[in-house]
């Protein structure tokens, strides 16, 4: 008969102590491939805009003319699609989550990549107006 069938588990819990993690005092559990948030290496980005096109959430905006890479963290779903799409591997999926915020802001990164040799920086002056 099943009275107090839970007793076994209760006693085990009492003996083994809490199974919970005292987050944020103790950091979150993470593994090498945990999808936390995307970061950009602005020195490598060639502003091709593939990440923008592949993003299922339309979180990324790349302005080729102004050389700006923008991400809206509220829209980003950390799916890794941009990282996979990037031809020069300038995007990285970090394992940590971004800190909670209360306002939706767009993160802007100026792209510092300079094309070696060949063509000059394409029409930077034009888009400024």
């Amino acid at each position: 008969m099943g009275f107090c069938t839970m007793a076994k588990i209760v006693i085990r819990n009492l003996v083994h102590g809490p199974a919970t993690r005292r987050y944020p005092a103790v950091p979150q559990r993470a593994c090498p491939i945990t999808r936390g948030h995307v970061t950009l290496d602005p020195a490598q980005c060639i502003s091709c805009g593939l990440c923008m096109r592949r993003c299922p959430a339309q979180a990324i905006q790349v302005d080729k003319a102004e050389k700006v890479w923008e991400i809206d963290r509220f829209r980003c779903i950390a799916c890794d699609a941009c990282v996979e799409a990037c031809p020069v591997k300038c995007l990285t999926m970090e394992t940590t989550y971004i800190a909670p915020v209360t306002e939706q802001t767009v993160e802007r990164h100026a792209i510092t990549y300079v094309k070696p040799e060949k063509k000059k920086k394409p029409e930077t002056g034009q888009a400024e107006g």
Binding site: N13, L14, H16, G17, P18, T20, R22
Partner: peptide, 9 residues
């Protein structure tokens, strides 16, 4: 109660 449930409380 928390300890019986495996929590800190």
């Amino acid at each position: 109660t928390a300890r019986m449930q495996g929590r800190v409380g």
